[in-house]
Design a binder for these strands. Structure first.
Lengths: 93, 93
DNA sequence: GGGGTATTTAGAAAAAAATCTAAATATCCC
DNA sequence: GGGATATTTAGATTTTTTTCTAAATACCCC
């Protein structure tokens, strides 16, 4: 159940910002890092969390690793929130 | 910007479960606590986080404090996720 | 008012997460 | 192969979060 993992991954501002950066297209770890005031190691840590949550995936090319958004998991989150908003749990009248 | 707060609040499994309990209707702090293996103080802590994130609100009655879901903030989260999925940031063709 | 129940607050302890530095891999390209 | 660049891993430290116990509030009802 990677569900909890996804929520955890989304809870950090840096990681959300990374996702927003990737919205515009794939970026290398270095490119991503250049947007933040932290070491590459820390960025790598955040990328690992996002990867484990299935929110991003990587593709290797030349000497770089490019990361891109994986939106499929976001559907699940949307569904959960939607059901929370939706009201009663089983059915409606 | 309570946005980050909301994500943080949603990142904890206990708090998500509390929200799910409240989906069925208002509950007192004690009622909520009876669903978990933790002290009332800890439940109170989680309720405070949820309250600060505007995910729940309380109404006092008799000797009890009843909590209920506030779904308005969830819209914002949905929107954010939706835009992340949606692709380009400003508009569509 | 005063005992009783419900909940919160304060403060400390334990657990988890974020960050750094230094070193390790991995891959490119000459 | 070997130096150069990109990224990750390991381990330690700092910060944040979760949890507990004990005490404090708050409110009810006799």
């Amino acid at each position: 159940m990677a569900f909890a993992e996804t929520f955890k991954a989304l809870s950090d501002p840096v990681r959300r910002q990374i996702l927003e950066l990737l919205k515009k297209g794939p970026l290398s770890a270095g490119d991503i890092g250049s947007h933040f005031e932290m070491t590459g190691a820390t960025i790598s840590y955040h990328l690992k969390i996002l990867k484990q949550a299935d929110l991003i995936f990587e593709s290797r090319e030349k000497n770089f690793i490019y990361y891109q958004l994986n939106t499929t998991v976001l559907e699940e989150i949307m569904l959960w929130i939607s059901e929370l908003k939706g009201g009663n749990s089983d059915a409606e009248s």
